[in-house]
Design a protein around this nucleic acid. Structure first.
Length: 317
DNA sequence: GCCACCGGTGGC
DNA sequence: GCCACCGGTGGC
């Protein structure tokens, strides 16, 4: 039986709130301006029910028609498209995050100009009553909704909290067309403690992971795991008071397209190619193309050169 | 040297 | 297969 669709819609507005495009310098600037970014775009009132007209940076590209061809090529790589994260959770409460795939300079170490790092463009949650997607004006509101999504399902009427008078009779704010990339967010993630900020960094298509989560501490330190947070709190007791470790979650959204993330190559022992010879020394002449190396414990190397880590300068397919 | 981004892997 | 965690590395 198919799970019931999500009921919340949140939009992260025209400003990129947490992921800054292009350069590290810009990234830093964005972090500094996070608070301003959180103000988000102006959400249309009910006298203009076509909310999507007000979605900043939403691509109008119709290059891939979901109506005509469900097997159409995926909506990326296309630097003009957007990414949307949504959260159809199994417990009938689904938060959505919309992410735009805005043009952005690719990391130079990946010499592939087609490689684009997407950015969060909007948060969206589905109404529990009408199932329409509603854009949420800023990340903070989204985080509040997400935290309590199970106990307090989102309704169109919830938008009145931010003076957006909309009802289930109004058209959906955003469609799941081919112009965006959608990903499932995790429900009930606690809102970051005061002074902390939860950062979601999306990776480019074909990476081994979809995204990374960081927590920016009150002092600006970025922490990327629970042990790092614990260590920080231990060394900064002035910022640890009342901060429970269970309020930190490093769960990342899951892309709706399961081929966005590179699959881990299956291990087939029959096709493994030796890169080092670890046999008896008297068989050294069996080595042909690769320099001999010992991959075992150093104390057993018997004078053989130590195996070096292989360096890849190409993308694995 | 710092940091953003990425890959890899052990544990489940 | 997923996830938490962390090491590597190239650009700045």
């Amino acid at each position: 039986m198919q799970s019931r669709p999500t009921k919340f819609t949140i939009k992260m507005g025209g400003k990129v709130h947490e992921i800054t495009p292009c350069t590290n310098q810009n990234r830093q600037k964005t972090i500094e301006n996070d608070q301003n970014a959180l103000e988000g775009p102006t959400i249309p009132s009910n006298n203009d029910s076509k909310g999507t007209d007000h979605i900043p940076n939403v691509s109008s590209s119709s290059e891939y028609s979901t109506e005509d061809d469900e097997n159409a090529p995926p909506p990326y790589p296309d630097s003009q498209k957007q990414m949307v994260i949504y959260n159809p959770s199994s417990n009938h409460s689904n938060a959505i995050t919309s992410i735009q795939n805005k043009p952005r300079s690719f990391p130079k170490k990946h010499l592939d100009p087609k490689r684009v790092v997407p950015e969060v463009g909007a948060f969206t949650v589905q109404c529990a009553n009408c199932f329409k997607w509603r854009l949420i004006p800023d990340q903070e509101k989204y985080e509040v909704i997400r935290e309590h999504i199970t106990d307090h399902p989102f309704l169109c009427a919830t938008t009145r909290q931010w003076d957006r008078h909309i009802s289930c009779d109004d058209p959906t704010d955003i469609e799941q067309d081919g112009s965006r990339i959608w990903a499932i967010d995790k429900p009930n993630i606690a809102k970051p403690p005061p002074g902390w900020k939860r950062l979601l960094r999306l990776r480019s298509e074909g990476s081994s992971k979809f995204a990374d989560v960081y927590y920016a501490s009150p002092t600006g330190t970025k922490l990327r795991s629970t042990p790092e947070v614990e260590k920080y709190l231990a060394s900064h007791p002035e910022h640890a008071e009342g901060v429970a470790i269970n309020r930190f979650s490093f769960q990342i959204p899951k892309p709706l397209r399961d081929d966005y993330v590179k699959k881990r190559p299956s291990q087939n022992p029959e096709r493994v190619q030796p890169i080092a010879w670890a046999g008896p020394v008297d068989n050294l002449n069996l080595q042909i193309a690769e320099p001999l190396a010992w991959a075992g414990p150093a104390e057993n190397r018997n004078g053989m050169p130590e195996a070096k880590k292989r360096k890849y300068d190409f993308d694995c397919l």
